[in-house]
Design a protein around this nucleic acid. Structure first.
Length: 213
DNA sequence: AAGGTAGGCAACCGCCACACG
DNA sequence: TCGTGTGGCGGTTGCCTACCT
């Protein structure tokens, strides 16, 4: 594993006595555990997590194994260094969807919902609050932004509908953007194909620009 | 140098949806 | 139709580091 991970493991490792007499370990994952888990998944596939946990003889529940695999061990995972483009995309997707981290992560190749959620909570939410301070206006547009950023799924859904309505009303001069088809993963490009990002950002310049500052 | 505190992040918890018998 | 098992998701916690006083 990467040295960064090793350091964290050392940091977060709990005292041995805390791990005794405990049926399932909740301590940080060790490189040995990672290796065992990866080996079992290589043989049996990433499904039936309870079975994987027992096959790997790890003192972990299936959920824990799944989380570890999805967030750290699976191939093509990107760690850290979220680019400006990715950050911008997260902001825009969050405005559309609210705290639907899994959906947002699904459109950021190599990123996990947990990473995006953490990044949002530690970086982006603060940025937005600062922006709000600077822009004290009360236009409909800004109200929509604030509502979408208040982690209220239902309200975010309403906002999405409002956006769709506005798009429909204003579709004569601008290309249409179908949010539902955008998030229809049944037609999926390769996991690392970033073409859709460019397409989305181009659309955003016209249709979703109403969200931009 | 020491203590306090905020930030960052890995991991767990609880709830929900779905599949299956 | 109902009960159970499993997986997925968002929210939250807890620990360590870095920074500040």
């Amino acid at each position: 594993m990467a040295s960064e991970t090793d350091n964290r493991i050392k940091r977060k490792a709990k005292p041995v006595e805390a791990m005794t007499n405990v049926p399932l370990s909740k301590a940080a994952w060790t490189p040995e555990e990672d290796k065992k888990l990866a080996e079992v998944i290589a043989v049996h596939g990433a499904k039936r997590w309870k079975s994987i946990a027992s096959k790997a003889a790890l003192n972990r529940c299936g959920k824990s194994c799944r989380l570890r695999w999805l967030n750290y061990l699976r191939p093509n995972i990107k760690r850290g260094n979220i680019s400006d483009q990715e950050e911008d995309l997260i902001l825009r997707l969050h405005k559309l969807l609210g705290n639907r981290w899994a959906l947002i992560a699904g459109r950021l190749p190599g990123r996990t919902d947990n990473e995006i959620k953490n990044y949002w909570n530690s970086h982006l939410s603060k940025k937005i609050k600062q922006r709000e301070k600077h822009s004290s206006g009360s236009s409909t547009k800004e109200k929509q932004e604030v509502a979408a950023e208040q982690k209220i799924p239902d309200e975010a859904e309403v906002i999405r509908e409002e956006v769709s309505t506005e798009e429909a009303e204003d579709s004569s001069s601008k290309p249409s953007f179908d949010v539902d088809s955008f998030f229809d993963f049944s037609v999926e490009e390769g996991p690392l194909n970033l073409e859709w990002v460019s397409q989305f950002l181009e659309l955003d310049e016209t249709n979703l620009g109403l969200f931009s500052q």
